[in-house]
Structures are given as C-alpha cells and as structure tokens.
Design a protein around this nucleic acid. Structure first.
Lengths: 221, 221
DNA sequence: ATTACTAAAAGACGAGTAA
DNA sequence: TTTACTCGTCTTTTAGTAA
C-alpha cells in the first residue's frame, strides 16, 4: 500500500500530466502545490521513486518526472474507487428513524381537495387521509439534507373559500417496498428531524408498526 | 483543506455506503480496512467529525457514521480530479529523446516489398527508405512501456526468396505534427530506450534536425 | 466487546547546509 | 537556482488503561 501523503503527491503529478509523459517539477513547485515545505516535497519524490511509482531524471534546475506503470495502476485503482462510490451509491439514500404521532394537522391538509388532486396527478398516489410521521435519527438528518439536491415534485399553493393554502414539495420514496412520498411544507420552517409521509393506504396498518418502531425510508433515483 | 490521512478515511467510509445513509463502523473495523491501529482510527473519526465531514451517533458496540454535505463535497472534488486526470490525459503520450544514427539496417528492411506494402496498406504511410532513430530519455522509457497497452498494428512476417522476414508491430504517431509510425520488430529483443520510426518523407529533412537534437514524439488516441 | 484518554516511542517536519 | 543531507523539534502513532 502507498502512504496517503504519497498518494496525494502522485495525484498532483498526474494532474500536471505525469501520466502522459515527463513533467517538469521542482521541490519548490510541488511544495507550493501541496502546501508543504520543499524538503518534504523532495522527500515525497524520493519516496515515490523508491516505491517505483515515478521515474525521475535530474536536471540543473528541477527534474523531469514520469509516472510509471505501477504508479498509474495505483491512480486507476483510486479512480475506480471513486467511481464505485458515486456510480453505485449515488442517488440512493436510506433514512432511519422511529415512528411518532403527529399533531393530526396532516390529516386535515391531505383531505383538502386542492392538495389531494395534486398528489394523485403528480405523484400517482391517492393519499389515505393521514400522515405517517418519522423522527429521524441524528445521523439521518445529515442524509436528509442531501435530499434537497434531488428533484422534488412541486405542490402548488392555492386559495379556496377565502383560505390560502401554501405550496409544498414532495419526493417519492418507499418503506419496506411500499410506495409513499415525503411531503415538506413550503415556507414553514419545519423541524428538520421530522419527516411527514403520505401513502395510498394507512402505513401503520400496511407495515404493522406502532409508535416508537424503527423505520427505514428508501429514496432512490 | 482536509489532511490526506483523513481523506483516505473518508473515502473508506464512502465505500461502505456512508454517502447514502448511516453506516455501522467501529474503530477496529476501520483500523483493519486502513491498516492502522484502532486508536488512530478513532482519532480519524474524531478529526473528521470536528471538520464537519461526518456525523456520528455512538452505540454500545460501534457507531453509526454518515458523510455530511461538506464531506460529500470533498469526495466529489477528488472524483473530479481523477476524472480530469484520466479523461484528458488518457491515451495521449509524449516521448522525449534525441535523434541518433541507426545501423542502416532499417533502410534495408523498409525497402523489402513485403514490409513496404503492409506499411502502405495498414498505416497509410508509403515509407521513405530509412528509419529515424530516437534514443529515449530515461523517464520516457517509462512512458514507452505504457504504449504496450495501446492498439498496435500488426505487421505480418513472410518468406521471400527463401529468406524469412519476422513480424513486427507499428503504432502511428507524430513529430512536430508530421505523421509517422513507431516500428518494433517482433521477436527480437530490441533495446527499450531506442525507438525506430518510419515516415513518408525523410524526417531529418522535414524537421531540419541532426544527430543529438531533442525530439518529442506524440502518440494520441 | 466498544470509545477515547494518557504517556512513551516512533516518525515526520522544516531549518540549515553542502554540493 | 536546484536536490538532498543532517539535526533538533514537534507531531503522530501506538500501547496501555479507564470508562
């Protein structure tokens, strides 16, 4: 295994073009690039050479460095790791929390025709009149924040009988394979550790869960 | 900037799925993964947490770790760097060396009809009867080795007038924008610091170079 | 089993220096 | 200017230990 410090140094050389051919490098230029002292940069180059990751030819004012096949292999392994990270885990999130009771407000809002019709049209879910509330575990709150980067379905606000109903956003997901959707009210500053879900049937019945039960919400795509 | 050691640790967590949600990790499991002591692994986690790269919830037997948005940003930056490395520098090589005189053997072989016709057909180069020999700089020898992974054009061996002519392989390239090709005899153990090139015209004339002159060979694609 | 502290050992760092 | 050595210092590591 290559030391992390050496790896970063090798990466810097690769970025300069060290994979394509000889690259002009000096201890000082490398040092600046990596925010280390020229002495340490020199040591890194020596270390990489000893590990057969690079090949060097010294010149009067600097040196020419090329990344060897072994060095390239290391770089490719890193590249492959990052591709694995972002190509398989990307856009697939798991939120973990526990089922809690809501304030009953959800039930009211979902029954309002102006919302229900949009859920049906835009999400394909004709919602059971009630919400399934999950209190997220502390680490899942971090994951929840990442969901903001996904494509949410806009639920428009409207006015009905002189009452104004605000907009919201929704994100399809599933619990135990059963389709549902996260609903987040538009403007209101909702507590970020609580998630409100809607679904075609009463989720408590479908899943057979009660208050305090552990719940895992899957968001894909 | 994140320390190289922490970065590697963060990468390991990402590989376990830390970007998608909470991941069960213990100092010991991480230690094994990274070939460090559990104490150091513990310190890395603390360090990453202090840098707001991960979020943790402690359990009796281990801990649940999630990579935060800031941590993900760091991972993406790394990923982007590696993509830059392999998507722009991939399959584009520069060999540097100096022009030397050959033994005159090249001139003979190239004149042999069995070879000349293949150069013309397979490479699109009707060669000037003579080779352009380059002695590679030490660092370029490393780059030359990488060329072995590219797609070479096979030049078949044949028999003519009871004489056997061996096969060879060729790789199109250019010098100063002028098209030529590297020729490497098949079986013979050719010195690896010397490259023999053919071209439609006499390269020494086209380039106006003489023995000892620095030459840069570009191999693309 | 865990985490994370303390303290001794190991290792890395950068200033100075020579070539 | 370079590279790379030595040397003193400081950081990091790991073993041991407690919770």
């Amino acid at each position: 295994m290559i030391a992390p410090d050496d790896l970063i140094c090798l990466k810097a050389i690769a970025l300069l073009g060290g994979l394509s051919g000889a690259v002009s490098v000096s201890s000082q230029s490398l040092a600046q690039e990596l925010s280390i002292s020229p002495q340490t940069a020199s040591r890194r180059l020596i270390s990489l050479e000893n590990a057969h990751m690079i090949s060097r030819t010294m010149g009067g004012d600097g040196q020419y460095v090329t990344i060897t096949a072994a060095g390239e292999e290391n770089m490719r392994a890193e590249y492959a790791a990052y591709r694995r990270i972002f190509e398989t885990h990307d856009r697939h999130y798991l939120l973990e929390g526990e089922l809690i009771s809501g304030l009953g407000e959800g039930r009211y809002y979902i029954s309002v025709e102006g919302y229900a019709s949009q859920f049906s049209e835009k999400l394909g879910i004709t919602p059971y009149p009630g919400t399934f509330n999950v209190k997220l575990s502390p680490t899942s709150i971090e994951t929840r924040r990442k969901l903001d980067a996904m494509e949410w379905t806009e639920i428009d606000g409207f006015t009905d009988h002189d009452r104004t109903f605000g907009g919201a956003r929704a994100l399809k997901c599933s619990i135990g394979g059963y389709a549902c959707a996260i609903i987040i009210p538009g403007r209101t500053h909702y507590p970020e550790d609580i998630i409100e879900l809607i679904s075609a049937e009463r989720l408590r019945d479908v899943l057979g869960t009660d208050d305090g039960a552990a719940v895992i919400i899957e968001v894909t795509r």
